[in-house]
Every structure is written in C-alpha cells, then in structure tokens.
Write a protein that binds this DNA or RNA. Structure first.
Lengths: 147, 147
DNA sequence: CGGTTTGGTCAACCACGTTGACTAATCTAC
DNA sequence: GTAGATTAGTCAACGTGGTTGACCAAACCG
C-alpha cells in the first residue's frame, strides 16, 4: 500500500489545490501547469532550459509553453543578446496563479498539521528526503511548494 | 516541498519497480499497466468495471485493455451468462508480471525500512491514511502493493 | 411486450510525450 | 576571419492515455 498512499497524498494535495485555484479564477490551470509556471520562475527562462528543469525534451517543453501562452499565463520575448533564444516569462496572470498556488499550498499543509501535528508532517518530509534521490528537487526554488 | 516529496517518493518506487521488472522480462510494462493488472485481478473483470475501479471512462479502459492484450498480458473471453459482457482476464504472462511486482515492492519497502526503520515507514503509512480520502483505495486488493 | 438500462465499440478530439530532421545563430579553433 | 561544431527553436510524425458523443445489441423490468 505504500506507493498508493504516497500517490494518494500527492494527488489529494494537487486536487485540492486545483479545486481552490478554480474558485479563485484559475479554472484552466491543470496539474502540470503549476510545475511549469514554477520552473519558469519570476526571472523567466527558455524552452530548452525549461525542458531540462522538467526532465522532458525541448520540443515537449515548447508545446507546453504554447498552451500556456494561449491561456495567458506565459509570454515569449526575444533575447536581445542571443537571437536564437526566445525568453519565456510569466505574465501578470501567470504570476497571480503562481502566488495563489503558494498561498493555497500553505493552507493545505496547515490542514495536515492540524490533523497530524507539525512534528509528524515534518517527519514525513524528512523521511521522504532521506529515501528519494536528490536530483528530484531541481524544482526546489525558494517560495514554491513551501510551508 | 511536501507535494514534491510525496511525488518523489511515489515515482522513486515506481521507477525502481519498472527498472527491476524490465530486468526480469517485463520491459514493456509501463507504470499504468501495473495498476491495470491489479485492477483486473486474478478473477478477471469487464472493461466497464475496470474503468470504474480505475476512475476512468469505459472507453479509456477498453483502449488500455486493447494495448495489454496486444502485449500478451490480458485476454478477452465471452461471458456465457451475459452475451453483452466480455470478460478480461490475466494471461499467464500477466499473472507473472503481477506476482513479480508484488515481490519487488516488498523488496523496495524493505529498503526503506533499512534506511528509516520499520516504525517510521509504518508511521508514514498511518499518517497518509489519516489525511487522504478513503475512496482512494478502491484498488486495495489483498496481495497488491502490500508490505 | 415495450421501454429503459447496461456493456462494448467507433469516431473525433485533446494533452502530453517521444524521435528525427531541419534552420538559424552563436561559439570555437585554426 | 572563416570553417566547423554546438545550441535554440520549430515542424512533422507518431504513441499513449484520456475525454465526449453516438450507436448497437443484449438484458432487465414494468
């Protein structure tokens, strides 16, 4: 049951997050998109770098950027110093979604601490850190999924 | 970080499982397939019931069954008592994959207990059970993902 | 018996991923 | 400084896993 419990814990948090995001005006954000917005980050990035951060091909990253551009979460801009590169940046709408995600995650983690206690939640985190490869956390950018 | 840690824990187990399954002659099994084989179970089922167990439409379940039939893990048979139903059953190859999955999961969980101790692993499981909806465990069939 | 429900399938479509091929721009080395 | 290698982006084809809608045949039920 361990794998299923881990999946259930993850999906419960993600599903609750997106239910609340939908209420707050981000109904079109899908679970993947939060990871992408986070990986883009406040400073912006490029499709190739995004693919690297997410562990997918640059083509897959490019197509996902296309969708998020169409939804108004990302925008592309030229790089004045390298004509090959196309910068990918958060729009104000994208930044709003990212910020709301962080706030909602804090609230969801708080719900867990009310059920389990802060020490148990921290113990889960410590234990999982101990048994998972460090390279899983290329996305560990300050401010995201914190709490 | 909590959601990412839960995802990392799950994916680490699933990735390790499939790396080992590939070594044992089941290279074509994808992560989804283990859930499907488990949901089919030793007694077999139908596409509609399978979709219900997995939480997807009967059409999606049917297409997945098609793929696993093509790979030799499942087979279809007529139901002598209801001409509408088509029974879906594990082939010997499918049963072999399912059994090997169970053995490998036991070994992977054992690795976690060597790092964390049996009590910590059990505590993670108890805590996750306490904060996730019970209906996540429609797949909690004896013998699967145990350990 | 007639109407509804159920199981399966087909078609069209979408999201997300892959690999391979290709262009254009930049970097590097001679 | 130019030739060759590397890098960024895109296009095309395809695979997998999911959706909805439509439809048929069998079963169930008043």
């Amino acid at each position: 049951m361990l794998p299923l419990l881990l999946l259930a814990g993850f999906r419960t948090l993600i599903d609750d997050l997106h239910a609340e995001l939908a209420r707050q005006g981000h109904a079109e954000l899908r679970p993947l998109h939060g990871f992408v917005l986070q990986a883009v980050g406040a400073d912006g990035t490029t499709a190739s770098e995004l693919g690297h951060r997410l562990g997918v091909s640059k083509q897959a990253a490019g197509k996902t950027v296309d969708r998020l551009v169409a939804l108004g979460y990302l925008e592309r801009a030229d790089d004045s110093r390298d004509a090959r590169r196309k910068l990918v940046r958060l729009t104000p709408h994208g930044l709003d979604g990212l910020r709301r995600s962080a706030v909602i995650f804090d609230a969801l983690r708080q719900r867990w601490t009310e059920t389990l206690g802060a020490d148990r939640v921290a113990a889960i985190e410590d234990d999982l850190r101990a048994v998972t490869p460090a390279n899983w956390f290329r996305l560990d950018i300050p401010g995201w999924f914190t709490g």
